[in-house]
Design a protein around this nucleic acid. Structure first.
Lengths: 207, 207
DNA sequence: CACTTCACGATTGTTAACAACTTTTGTCAA
DNA sequence: TTGACAAAAGTTGTTAACAATCGTGAAGTG
């Protein structure tokens, strides 16, 4: 979610065990769940690797978000109460603060989380889970194909979307979100892909 | 998926092991995955139980489908080629055949599968997975709250929806789907819920 | 020098025994 | 008969040893 683990990084069981000070069973359970969400890939007898989406998958993710998120935002603008939205105003304050301090990983995480919290505002468990999965995957994709500066969402688009929702302007909110998604997707360079491979323990930082 | 296991049925590890002739590890892996999809519920130290959605969850599932499926069908009608749709015409033939022979479980399974295959026709992995999860959950809900006759989708609605898609009438297809979903949801009796509890081994039928 | 083969090391998959917890059963007393 | 407490049975969670598989490098051959 914070793009600290590069795609194709190997997640060896032994390494994870000592990094987190935990038995192999826990690690394997976690890996299985992560693979079921498509975050990592489990290769039989070969181990777990951070998922490495290709161009097709990247397009599919954005197509799926284009299908779901616009109606979602429209619905929020039409029906939602102010109570649910307070979480979002708070969140945008956090985003601004992180941008102020130039905390890269924090910015990336919060940037994705905004979209997750949009879904959460529907107070619909299933919509929330679906969006979380798509957002996580988007994070992977941006880390793979994104140029370094557009790793986060453009500065104030989130806040404009939220304003449109708050003023119950469904049409505007939907349009803003659509162009927001287009901005993110447009900022990707689908041809070049960086492929680093840092050390696991140092990245995750043992407790 | 076929409504053979009633909600709240306990799935004991030992029982499953001998029923399927498999080690405990396999069973636990399967249970973990099922619980991650919300099909069963894992209670700590107490075991696995078939999920038992309440009214709120039922409404959430339909709300989620209302959000996703109409745009999905609209998109299919607008953009899809005939090739993808041939799977659907074949499928409707299967549904008709099952209805002819009065094969209850088969009808239920195929009835849900139609919606899954609609999603599959987008050839978008993520949309497919999301719809499959929602359809599975719908199956549970219909089993819980549905009266016995409307366990399956109304007879020819599927075929009408497909025709609208094939004739590229996006607006009509979307409307037909919306009322189709409303029919299903409307047929539920949200107050009364049946609670049987048959024996596991006999239901699953040992191989 | 290139290529194949074999064996070793490392990693993952599986099994079985053990520990912890929950539920049921049985006993005793009020 | 009912309630509380205790023991026991059954179920789940964990651990550690074992088996199977894969990748690598060395040795051997053309």
């Amino acid at each position: 979610m914070e793009q600290r683990l590069a795609p194709n990084t190997k997640l060896s069981e032994a390494r994870l065990c000592e990094t987190f000070g935990v038995g192999r069973m826990r690690v394997r359970r976690a890996l299985l769940l992560l693979s079921s969400q498509g975050i990592i890939e489990l290769q039989s007898n070969r181990g777990a690797y951070v998922a490495c989406p290709d161009k097709t998958e990247a397009n599919d993710v954005f197509a799926a978000r284009m299908l779901i998120e616009p109606p979602l935002v429209r619905q929020l603008a039409q029906s939602s109460s102010d109570i649910n939205l307070s979480v979002l105003t708070d969140h945008i304050r956090l985003e601004d603060a992180a941008r102020e301090k130039n905390e890269r990983t924090e910015i990336i995480r919060l940037s994705g989380e905004f979209h997750t919290k949009l879904a959460e505002a529907t107070s619909n468990k299933f919509i929330f889970r679906m969006m979380r999965e798509l957002v996580t995957r988007t994070s992977l994709i941006v880390g793979l194909f994104g140029s370094s500066e557009n790793a986060s969402c453009p500065d104030d688009e989130h806040s404009k979307i939220l304003q449109a929702i708050q003023s119950k302007n469904a049409e505007l909110a939907e349009q803003l979100l659509i162009s927001h998604l287009n901005h993110i997707q447009g900022g990707l360079e689908m041809e070049t892909r960086q492929e680093p491979q840092d050390d696991l323990a140092t990245i995750l930082g043992a407790t």
